[in-house]
Amino acid sequence: MKNSLFQFIIVSVTTFFFIPMEANDLDYQKYQTIKEMISNPHHQEEVEIYQERIRKVTDAPLPYLIKIVQSKDSFVFIRARAIQLLELYQSPTSGSALEKTIEDTHENTHLRKLAIRTYSKFSKIDTNRQSKFMKQFESDKELGLIVKNKQKFNRNSKHNQLDKHKFNQLNHN
């Protein structure tokens, strides 16, 4: 009896500390404000402007952007802009969110391709892991061409940083 109670306590404590923040744990008002900021289709602004506006709402925007990316009830263009903004907040968490978007075969193809573009620009993650992950999609009929092009581009480029002009072009497409 003591052993099973002890195991239950260990599992409960471990789950509490190692499960990532759920969407319900986010400040709903901050979530809505950030979502509203990036949802205006008529104002395609520089990434720094979005970043500055979001910074006024929270110092930790990553969970909110990920929630927007994963929110199937949001318009595709809002989720696309959140995917693009993840490039500003490169971390294992944002990389994982992009990987999930890329892997989700039920996800919008445009969002999956955009997630590949953003993920391929990540310079703060293990490049071997990134290459292995991307390699799985080389023969995918929807994603293969963009994966191959991104790999070729990454091999030829010296810097793997955000290109403001490309960000604006993606917003206008």
Rank of each mutant, 00 (worst) to 15 (best):
L85C: 10
R79L: 08
A97D: 05
Q169P: 04
Q136K: 15
K72G: 10
I68N: 02
T58E: 04
K30Q: 14
N128D: 11
N108D: 15
Q169W: 05
E99W: 09
R55C: 03
S91T: 13
D73N: 14
L111K: 02
T58H: 09
K158R: 11
N171E: 12
Q151T: 07
L170P: 00
D25R: 02
S74I: 06
F18P: 03
S4L: 14
H106Y: 13
F17W: 12
M134C: 07
H165Q: 07
N149W: 03
E138M: 09
I10D: 13
S12L: 15
E22T: 09
M134D: 12
S4Y: 06
T105A: 09
V13L: 15
K72T: 11
Y89R: 00
I49R: 07
N154V: 08
S4I: 11
R55Q: 13
I146H: 02
F17N: 06
P92I: 13
S91Y: 02
N171G: 14
D27W: 03
N171S: 07
I34P: 01
K72S: 15
Q169N: 10
T58L: 09
R117L: 09
A97Q: 01
T58S: 12
L26E: 03
A23R: 13
Q44M: 11
K2I: 14
E103F: 00
Y31V: 12
I78F: 06
K121Y: 01
L143R: 00
E99H: 02
S120M: 12
D25C: 09
Q29R: 12
T14H: 03
H110R: 10
F167W: 02
L98G: 00
A60S: 15
K148G: 04
E36A: 10
I49C: 05
N24K: 14
E22Y: 08
N173Y: 06
H42R: 12
F122G: 02
I9F: 06
G144S: 04
F167S: 01
H110D: 05
S12E: 12
V76A: 11
I66L: 10
F133H: 07
L65S: 06
Y89D: 07
Y119P: 03
G144I: 07
Q7A: 13
A80E: 05
N108G: 03
K141E: 14
E46D: 13
N3C: 09
K72W: 06
F75T: 10
K132C: 08
N173S: 11
D104V: 02
E138F: 03
N3A: 14
I146T: 12
K148C: 04
N156Q: 10
R112K: 06
N160A: 06
Q32T: 11
S139Q: 10
R55L: 13
R53W: 01
A82N: 04
F167H: 00
H110Y: 12
K124E: 15
S96Y: 03
Q90S: 06
E99P: 00
Q51N: 14
L62Y: 03
D104Q: 05
N40Y: 05
K56P: 02
L85I: 06
A80L: 01
H43D: 15
E142C: 00
K30H: 06
S71V: 07
I49W: 05
N108I: 12
A82D: 05
I102R: 00
E22L: 15
V69E: 08
K135R: 13
Y50L: 04
L88W: 01
L114I: 10
K158A: 15
F153A: 13
E36S: 14
Q130K: 15
Q32P: 01
